[in-house]
Amino acid sequence: MDLLTRQPLLAATALLVPLLVLVSPGWLSLDGVGPCWAVLWLLPWALSDGPFSGACAGLALGLLLDALHPGGVTQVPALLLLGWWWGRMGRRAPPIQRSFSLGLLALLGTALLGLTLMLQWGLLDWMGTREAIQLAGPQVGRRLADQGVNPALLALPGWRWDDLAGSGLRVLLTQTLITALLAPMLCSLQLLLWRQVGSGWRR
């Protein structure tokens, strides 16, 4: 909590996350999929600043990122949960600085974030299909299906189930992998920075 209460301006570095999402440097991507910058920033922040600060940062990041991406899905719950979880871990566990565990945490976090997104799209798909069939009525729905039109196609908000299982899984795996590869490098540097800043005040 030291960082957030004593120098809230430091939290403004979180603004780098949406900027990096927009820049999405092509040379820092795996099969075209970039890393999950939110996880790369949130992990060291939460580890060094506790659960409450982590959850606040997660909420703010989620809101910022949802603004950039259209559609009915949100990243807020996953980032909130991750910030809180990593914050608790930083306080209770012995100091985590070894690169391997940072990579592992980033991997788990990215996978969780991707899974919540997939879950939301899956739900929207299921509800959209049901709603479309309800709206059209069973007879019209069947007639559309007879004519070769999937009634759900006309009412869908995002990914469909079979796309999620195919290319969605690929996106999830690639993003998880590239984030976990970058985390040891980027997160340990940030962790070092936050710890130095924090210890400066304690002395």
Binding site: V21, S24, H69, P70, G114, V171, Q175
Partner: peptide, 14 residues
């Protein structure tokens, strides 16, 4: 085109 995200969860240009 000032931002290009042609693969990933969202495929969009800015």
């Amino acid at each position: 085109v000032i931002s290009r995200d042609a693969s990933g969860w969202w495929r969009q240009l800015l």
